[in-house]
Design a binder for these strands. Structure first.
Lengths: 236, 236
DNA sequence: AAGTGGTCTAGACCACGCC
DNA sequence: GCGTGGTCTAGACCACTTT
């Protein structure tokens, strides 16, 4: 706590950060309570709270009402974009992860204009499902699928991944146009993915085509950025 | 402000959020000052500050000491991973973005073990540079390049993108293994990219190979997640 | 009931940007 | 010098979890 120029709360969170990184507080372990830290650093509660907030904001810890503040695990699961959603289950097994699907919605709708344009139709099946990895809700997949395909495989789609389902039924996906960006959890997403409001999310946005360049599916899949990494190999 | 169960600061930030989304406060515009908002909502300063903090945390606004709080632009630049760092300048021109490089470091070093393994050598050239898009520091590129290549093209590498420099000199990159993940700005990154501590960053991590499957460059490029989207096309 | 974190207040002082 | 946001205090009450 040398430099007077650095705010107290920052100095304290830096000390706590160091303690986490050097293992003084191990992963999963509980930090001292606000009261204990107040005494330890001789500052007011609001300053300790601010310091802890900094840690949470940096993804190093998470607070649980009535229980305490805990050190977060920094490990991430890696998913290959090339195989993602196609060989998803295999990919996960390889990493020793248990995956499950929680079906939310399936209905015929009139998609937003941009999606209508992509799919070349003013009607489509909309589906949303949550992917649980080791029991943790990690990805929310919201997608629009061509009406006829949706109707044909409705039941199967509700309990399985979209792409493997299509493949199993002889519909081959030959190209995926995708983008990855970072957003932050709004009300709805924070509930579905069980994260605090504003938590960073990685959004995987995709359009899948068959061998005739016909677009089959358009989807957007926000995922927990603290749990996932996406990998891709680019060949010239 | 109906439900008593929702904290005041959340109710207020939701109102402000709506105002931003409906254009009451336009992009780039200044929000009312804390004092004005205190009167408007009849709450204490700390609650207004918390509400504004929520907006900032959700990436909707940014606070500037001594100036005020401003509505953030939500537009992002899209970069194709396939062409990224190879046709970077072209990609940017296409989007009407002015790009520039700010050289930070260039030196021969002994890279960390993991990088030594990737490059198959215990010595390499380390370079770090900042990419400015329309004058905004958006990407910090830190990379290790094979010793001989680094020495050979040292001067050129300091003022230009790595991959185009290699290509211009007849070194062909035929494969890139990449990953994308989200982290949060630490002290150093928050200074280089001019963002607050803890701000989400998209990290593009890559290894480039030539046609003989020899690894040439290993790099890690944190970028501002509020400014960039990465795109990729996957063919089977 | 005890202990934890979450919300909120009123008020003080400081640091930065602009006129 | 003024207005802005940034830091910090002491203290109150509430909500959740565990015992």
């Amino acid at each position: 706590m040398s430099d007077r120029r650095i705010p107290l709360h920052l100095q304290i969170s830096q000390v706590l950060r160091q303690r986490i990184e050097t293992g003084v507080y191990a992963v999963g372990e509980q930090l001292p309570s606000e009261h204990q830290l107040m005494e330890q650093f001789q500052v007011s509660r609001i300053t300790i709270r601010r310091a802890i907030h900094n840690l949470v904001h940096q993804g190093l810890a998470s607070a649980q009402h009535g229980r305490g503040v805990f050190v977060k695990n920094q490990c991430k699961w890696v998913y290959s974009l090339s195989s993602l959603l196609i060989f998803f289950e295999e990919d996960m097994k390889r990493q020793g992860v248990q995956s499950a699907i929680c079906h939310l919605e399936f209905q015929e709708v009139s998609p937003p204009p941009r999606v209508q344009e992509i799919l070349g139709s003013d009607l489509a099946c909309f589906q949303s499902k949550i992917l649980l990895l080791d029991g943790i809700p990690a990805i929310l997949d919201k997608s629009y699928i061509l009406l006829e395909l949706g109707r044909q495989f409705a039941n199967e789609l509700k309990t399985a991944m979209t792409f493997p389902t299509l493949e199993r039924n002889g519909i081959h996906i030959s190209k995926i146009e995708a983008s990855l960006e970072c957003t932050r959890a709004d009300q709805q997403l924070s509930e579905h993915l069980a994260v605090p409001l504003g938590e960073p999310l990685l959004v995987y946005c995709y359009t899948a085509y068959d061998q005739y360049q016909r677009s089959l599916v358009y989807g957007s899949a926000p995922s927990r950025a603290d749990l996932l990494t996406y990998a891709v190999t680019i060949n010239r």
